[in-house]
Simulated assay, not measured.
Amino acid sequence: MPGGSGRGPGRSCRLSNGRCGPLSLMITAGRRADCTQFQAVLDKIRVPRPVGWSRIKPVSIAADKAYSNGQIRRYLRRRGIRHTISEKTDSRVARLRKRSRGGRPPGFDPQRYAKRNTIEQMINKLKQLRAAATRYDKHGYVFLGAVTFVSLVIWLRT
């Protein structure tokens, strides 16, 4: 999930599938951390199926160290979503300092973590449209419309 400039309509939190297609978009304030909107972005997922209800829960998630906090890990565990999130260095040091009270290290699968580059590829595809890359729009809904349009183009091309 990308960063953004501190001005204009703000950042956009994104979630993508394994083929670099956007699944969920959300516009936030300019200087707000993306990890605070993790649950809201994940709750907006709706993947239609040929038969039956839409799927609202991903099978697994791979994220970077910015999403390595207890609140996100508890949320994913509660929903039964497998996750691969690398542990922050300061969290590891604090856990080791507590010894047995620090608990076990979180599970980590390096092969699944290597596939997390799909979000970066999706961001690069979105930034091919100048309006989505520069964020010069005055209003957030205009920026969201531009990013949604580019997302539709990406889905139609795949």
Rank of each mutant, 00 (worst) to 15 (best):
A62S: 15
A62D: 07
A62C: 11
A62I: 06
A63F: 06
A63N: 08
A63H: 09
D64A: 05
D64H: 02
D64Y: 02
D64Q: 03
K65L: 09
K65P: 10
K65D: 13
A66W: 01
A66K: 01
Y67G: 10
Y67V: 07
S68L: 03
N69G: 11
N69W: 04
N69E: 08
N69K: 08
G70V: 01
G70H: 07
G70S: 09
Q71W: 12
Q71G: 09
I72L: 03
I72A: 02
R73H: 09
R73Y: 04
R73D: 03
R73A: 08
R74D: 06
R74P: 00
R74I: 01
Y75Q: 13
L76T: 06
L76D: 09
L76R: 12
L76M: 14
L76S: 12
R77K: 14
R77I: 00
R77C: 08
R78D: 11
R78M: 11
R79H: 01
R79Q: 10
R79Y: 00
R79S: 00
G80L: 01
G80M: 02
G80D: 03
I81D: 06
I81L: 10
I81N: 11
I81G: 13
I81T: 06
R82G: 11
R82Y: 12
T84P: 11
I85E: 01
S86P: 13
S86G: 09
E87K: 02
E87P: 01
K88D: 07
K88N: 11
K88S: 10
T89H: 01
T89F: 00
T89D: 09
T89I: 00
D90M: 05
D90A: 11
S91N: 15
S91A: 15
S91T: 15
R92W: 04
R92N: 12
R92L: 10
R92F: 04
V93L: 12
V93T: 14
V93E: 14
V93F: 10
V93S: 13
V93D: 15
V93K: 15
V93C: 07
A94H: 10
R95G: 00
R95W: 00
R95T: 01
L96M: 07
K98L: 06
K98A: 10
R99M: 13
S100I: 06
S100N: 11
S100M: 11
R101K: 13
R101M: 03
G102Q: 04
G102H: 05
G103E: 08
G103L: 08
G103R: 12
R104Y: 06
R104K: 14
R104C: 02
R104G: 03
R104F: 05
R104L: 07
R104T: 04
P105D: 11
P106D: 03
P106N: 05
P106A: 02
P106K: 03
G107A: 14
G107F: 06
G107V: 06
G107R: 13
F108C: 08
F108M: 08
F108S: 10
P110L: 09
P110Y: 10
Q111H: 15
Q111M: 15
Q111S: 15
Q111N: 15
Q111P: 00
R112E: 12
R112N: 13
R112I: 08
R112Q: 14
A114G: 12
